[in-house]
Amino acid sequence: MAVPTNGSAPANVEEAVPAATISNAYKNWYRFSRNPTAVIGAVIVLIVIACALFAPWIAPYPEQVDNFVDFRARHLPPSWDHWFGTDNVGRDVLTRVIYGYRISLLLVVVVLGLSIPFGVMLGLMAGYFGGWVEIVIMRLTDIALAIPPLVMALAITAVLSPNLMNAMIAISVLWWTWHTRLIYSITRTLKTQEFVEAAEILGASKVHILFKELLPNCVSAISVKATLDAGFVILIGASLSFLGLGVQPPTPDLGTMVATGADYLPDRWWQSVMPGMAILFAILGFNLLGDGLRDMFDVEDVR
């Protein structure tokens, strides 16, 4: 029944030039590498990840991370010895910031690791099966989306005891909804494509269609979303710690450091501003990278 629209000549060079000679990976890399903000984002994210992975080797004073007190060296302003200064018990702020990235990234990995598979799975099912499956999943998602994540996390950590584990659970409880929404909308479009109908006719199982046909087509959108998410998770984690509901001292956490350092503002600004800048730096990196990936993959559904 579809109106044939054959024979439209190439509107751009991608169609004019046979694609066979240029791989998709190369095209993606070409687009990415010519997008300066994306490259900056990627560099920042790599720095943050390197800090987290190699903290003991990078940090100037690894012994000063947690239970270390040196009252002679407390409240030292930034200097050659202590680039970010020292805190109220004499610990090197730079060292603690570098270790702090470990906590932040752990939070990101656990939260996204829990919520993405769950959210994606529900989104795929709602989009592909439709009917009551769709109604149940999507209404549930709507309800969950109506709850502000920070408020929910505050409630959960307040009820349970405040620690890193509970903070991660609290954030994950609502995080999947965004992925369900995203994957649902992509799947709805994909399922009308002929390759899905073809798989049905060829006798493929529902599991095959969900995970082998539909899921691979969602991967670029998920990776963009996950990258953008990372920044938000870091921010929410830091907010919880700032409020004393997340990671507890003396564990080096960026949010906690900002909170503790805030007592000494404005004179001893480095104690809160430096960790604050570190949070900003990481979030900026993930957001720039996420936007860059979005342009590169040309996905539109992602917020």
Binding site: G7, A9, P10, A11, A16, P18
Partner: peptide, 12 residues
């Protein structure tokens, strides 16, 4: 007149 990719659209 020409087939897909022959350049007629670019000409236009």
């Amino acid at each position: 007149v020409g087939e897909t990719g022959c350049g007629k659209s670019v000409t236009l």
